[in-house]
Computed example of a mutant assay.
Amino acid sequence: MTKLIIQIPCLNEAAGLPDTLAKLPRSIPGIDTIEYCVIDDGSTDDTSGVARRWGVHHIVRHRRNRGLAEAFRSGLERCLAEGADIIVNTDADGQYEGADIAKIVAPVVAGEADICIGDRSVARNQHFGPGKRLLQRLGSYVVRTLSATDITDAVSGFRAISREAAQRINITTEFSYTTDMLIQAGRKRLAITSVPVRTHAATRPSRLFKSIPRFIQQTGVTILRAYTTFNALRVFVGLGAVATLIGLVPIGRFLWFALNGDGDGHIQSLVLGGALLTVGVLVVTLGILADLIATNRKLLEAALLKLRKLEDKLDRGEGQAQKMPDDETGRPTSDVVPQRLAG
């Protein structure tokens, strides 16, 4: 029995959520059971109530807004706890075509990929302006290079994830999970692919960021942090080498004048060069420490993966997955009968 759970992070989506739910697939080749999970990230409208009335199987509710990355993480944890073999993440704003869920699930069902990204064909997507196309392509190129993957739409949130991959991914950013997840997956040698998907015009401004410069800044920080986490030694040794090489320039200048009997008037070059060499050594030392910390992280993640697999075995031994209560409310939501979605 292969179970697919489609998760939808939401923030004040009471008006548009019914249309999104209505377009979700009811059956997919290779999938025996399809369920839906709504993550209400501190909505001030009736998003959770709408999801409940529409028969959504699982509802996770944050009492206050925590951000898209945290909503995505909460969704993964709930889906895993509910026994999902494959998890699909989609948006509530209707940007993605619900019928294309079958397309992004297919490589995972076939065992060809751990993660499949819905490629929006950014370069020729008529719903994107020239500026957005350029930024998306540039960002995807950076992520593709740093993650050692061949994904052309790195920030697409439309993606299918196998249970194994979801258990191995640990989102650490507070902004957006998309780039962090890809860099992690690439560095952990997970099989990643993409398929072209259809998109629709945006019905409202993005709630993830307030301006393009803000988006670029936060995405850049997320990419840098994720890459440094898995390549700490390379990053810090590179920075230390740069500082050292720059420091050798004023030192060489001082030695040149000193050999020509004019070293007294250029002592400041020696001081500057010495300071830069010291900085270089300190940065390399920090890199070694950071690499040791990264090694410890790998051990912790390996232990966490074993713990998750052990929980899976215990759940299967009991005959059914444990039901988790609605986040922070203590009220179960998994027993909702999907009346509207059943049709």
Rank of each mutant, 00 (worst) to 15 (best):
P213A: 09
V279D: 06
R66P: 01
G118A: 11
A71T: 10
L289H: 10
R66T: 12
R120K: 03
S211G: 11
I117D: 04
R144K: 14
D153H: 09
N125E: 08
T178W: 01
E112P: 04
I31P: 01
E97H: 04
V279Y: 11
R253D: 06
R133H: 09
T149E: 03
T179G: 02
A123T: 06
E318Q: 11
L304K: 02
S269L: 12
K188W: 01
R78I: 05
V271Q: 03
L276E: 00
I293S: 06
R124T: 15
H127D: 08
A22E: 08
G263C: 02
V109D: 03
A191L: 09
R253E: 04
L304Q: 02
A302S: 07
G280S: 03
R26T: 07
G98D: 04
A191N: 07
D327I: 04
L270N: 11
L299E: 10
W54V: 05
E328T: 15
R26A: 11
R144N: 12
V279I: 15
R225S: 08
V142M: 15
F72H: 06
D312V: 05
G118N: 09
A342L: 12
V88L: 07
G265V: 01
L300V: 07
K306Y: 09
N296A: 14
L304V: 00
V235I: 14
P250D: 06
R78M: 13
A303N: 10
I288V: 15
L138C: 15
E82V: 05
S269D: 14
V337Y: 01
P250N: 05
I223R: 00
A92K: 01
G319S: 00
I192M: 07
L255R: 03
G16M: 05
G247S: 10
G30Q: 07
F175A: 06
T173Q: 05
P250V: 13
I6L: 12
T47Y: 05
T244A: 09
L208V: 14
G139V: 01
G247Y: 02
T199C: 09
E328S: 15
K306R: 14
K3V: 13
